[in-house]
């Protein structure tokens, strides 16, 4: 699998951005965590108690977030580090931030012109779910829902026009 620029979409159209976001996410999990994400089939909502966010600025402004349960975040960390799940500790926020950063970078690198014209902020990670996120974005967020084993991961891109 090549996570480079092999699959680059034109800058103008946002119609296929959700598909690109899904591909970008799947590539990060396959290459860096060694696991395949599967499609999320049901509409059930699970608690997202860890949220990582990366800001995008320049030709594309917005926020990309990765939300999941603490159990999913611990599983991601375990797979990234190649250690047993019960050995995972304080690295969870760092790991989820890096996943979010790589998904954001991989996504923008798939859209012509954005690799050069869009910069990423360092990741921010929120633990807990008692918060409200208010964005200046004026379009509905793109959202991709995938399963890591049986655990839901929600990837959202809120674009500011």
């Amino acid at each position: 699998m090549n996570a480079g620029t092999a699959m680059q979409a034109p800058r103008g159209s946002q119609e296929n951005w959700a598909a690109l976001l899904e591909v970008a996410t799947r590539e990060v999990f396959a290459l860096m965590l060694g696991c395949q994400l599967t499609a999320f089939a049901t509409a059930d909502e699970s608690i997202s108690d860890v949220t990582a966010m990366v800001g995008l600025a320049g030709q594309l402004c917005g926020v990309l977030s990765v939300r999941c349960s603490g159990k999913a975040a611990a599983l991601m960390t375990s797979k990234m580090l190649g250690v047993a799940l019960d050995k995972v500790g304080s690295e969870i926020a760092d790991a989820l931030g890096e996943v979010c950063n790589m998904v954001a970078g991989n996504f923008k690198n798939k859209i012509a012109g954005l690799a050069e014209g869009c910069m990423l902020s360092p990741p921010t990670v929120i633990t807990g779910n008692d918060y409200t996120l208010r964005s200046q974005g004026d379009t509905p967020a793109l959202e991709v829902r995938l399963l890591l084993e049986d655990l839901l991961i929600i990837i959202s891109l809120q674009v500011h026009s």
Partner: peptide, 22 residues
Amino acid sequence: TEGSEAQVVQALSSGASGYIRK
């Protein structure tokens, strides 16, 4: 993570020998 060709060129011209993209 950055895929900018300009950044690759800048890194290589500054003395980097290689470049790996995450």
